[in-house]
Design a protein around this nucleic acid. Structure first.
Length: 434
DNA sequence: AGGAATGATTACCA
DNA sequence: TGGTAATCATTCCT
């Protein structure tokens, strides 16, 4: 019995075709339709047994012969078609998945945190952003910053190595399955489309594993970040010198305690803190001062005197040098003199209903505020308290609280203020116009 | 230990 | 975007 014959004998299910009929599909149909007697189960079993008795070489040879048979492609495609129509069509609908929003979110986050995407500066940029958000000092910040960066790099490394492993496993498994299916497609109906589908299923499975990996990585980054930020919350008070510099600026700019970006930078440099810390400090100071001007009176007086003395010293030095130029007129960096302005207010004169200030103050006020703000006025009153004994019952801060710093005070408060001045004129000599 | 002081954060606003 | 107001969390001081 040659291979061809034996193979055909093995194809008993096809209806026991004779060798002469095998090459002709029409004769197959004809014989089936004629109701040719089916082989009984015993015959089939016998044939199966015969196959198991075959040697490997024989089986390979038969397989090869089967693959080469000219009927095979036609039968294969018919069976594939039937399979496609019955089994595969059921799950063939949900083929093209839209990109999972969850994965997109995770991807974006990993990219933003510098875990995925290009390595260059990724982690450090995120760390810097976190540092900026936290507004930590540059000195201790650098230590924590590098620590954060190192940990982030570690997470990044683990993430990438795991991702690589998954991708490798995915591709290996896909190849394996593809080869297996291709191999099997020689003996059973597996269309290329089905193989593609199988590959897609495998990829989906692996991408769900990847999503878990991404989720875990995101969690790790979040934990790291929160720890990093928590560490930064552990604040330290600024040193005495820094506080002094900030207070000096604040009280010498009491009418407008809003340092420009340049001034903030300069202050930050002087104090050894960040610009955002300067902003925080001024934010806190303004609000706390405004809330309780009385409490800050002593401090304000202290700085007013200090600044005035400093100004006087520099002025004396300038006149000693016989220089006609205004001291500090050419300096854009230092504010001590050029803005000593408000500090002089404690020593200023009063004239009429308006406020007459020293030339230095006038220079500062013109163009910034035509009308002094309420905290400014009340602070002035308090600074003058040695000269003007205000009644204890009156608390300017109560009125001030309701007003924002720069808002022009309502006329009633102006009148209130002026009436105080009038009352006070009995205590000390004032010009009749007061 | 407990309150005050203070730097940082957050929500909201213009 | 920068400011205010409230609040939190930590440090300082008594």
């Amino acid at each position: 019995m040659d291979d061809q014959t034996r193979m055909l004998a093995g194809l008993g299910g096809l209806g026991g075709l004779s060798q002469a009929d095998v090459g002709d599909p029409d004769s197959v149909r004809k014989q089936q339709s004629l109701g040719q007697p089916q082989q009984d189960i015993g015959d089939i079993l016998q044939q199966i047994m015969a196959i198991t008795d075959e040697s490997l070489d024989e089986a390979q040879a038969r397989k090869h012969a089967l693959n080469c048979h000219r009927m095979k492609p036609a039968l294969f495609s018919v069976l594939c078609e039937i399979k496609e129509k019955t089994v595969l069509s059921i799950r063939g609908v949900q083929e093209e998945d839209p990109p999972d929003p969850q994965i997109m979110r995770l991807d974006n986050m990993l990219l933003a945190e510098g875990v995925s995407g290009p390595e260059k500066g990724g982690g450090s940029a995120a760390a810097a952003a976190a540092a900026a958000a936290a507004g930590g000092s540059p000195n201790d910040g650098s230590i924590e910053h590098s620590d954060y960066r190192a940990k982030l790099a570690q997470i990044r490394q683990i993430y990438h190595s795991e991702l690589e492993k998954y991708e490798q496993a995915c591709s290996e498994f896909t190849n394996h399955v593809m080869n297996l299916l291709r191999e099997q497609s020689r003996t059973r109906p597996i269309s290329p489309k089905e193989i593609e589908r199988m590959v897609a299923i495998i990829h989906r499975k692996f991408s769900s594993i990847q999503m878990q990996l991404k989720q875990s990585t995101c969690e790790a980054v979040m934990i790291l970040r929160s720890r990093f930020l928590d560490a930064r919350r552990k604040r330290r008070n600024f040193n005495k010198q820094a506080t002094e510099v900030l207070n000096e600026y604040f009280y010498s700019h009491l009418s407008n305690p809003y340092p420009s970006e340049e001034a903030k930078e300069e202050l930050a440099k002087k104090c050894g803190i960040t610009v955002s810390q300067v902003s925080n400090w001024f934010g806190n100071k303004r609000i706390r001062y405004k809330k309780n001007i009385g409490k800050f009176q002593e401090e304000a007086n202290l700085y007013a005197v200090k600044t005035a003395v400093d100004a006087a010293n520099v002025s004396a030095q300038a006149s000693q040098a016989n220089s006609p130029a205004t001291p500090n007129s050419g300096s854009s960096g230092s504010y001590t003199l050029s803005h000593a302005g408000d500090a002089y207010l404690g020593l200023r004169s009063l004239d009429g209903d308006g406020v007459s200030v020293t030339p230095a103050v006038q220079q500062q006020q013109v163009g910034t505020e035509d009308v002094p703000s309420m905290p400014f006025l009340f602070h002035t009153c308090l600074q003058c308290s040695d000269l003007f004994p205000f009644p204890q019952s009156y608390s300017p801060s109560l009125e001030c609280r309701a007003l924002s710093w720069k808002r022009t005070p309502p006329s009633s408060l102006w009148h209130c203020f002026i009436s105080f001045l009038r009352q006070s004129s009995t205590a000390i000599p004032l010009s009749p116009s007061c």
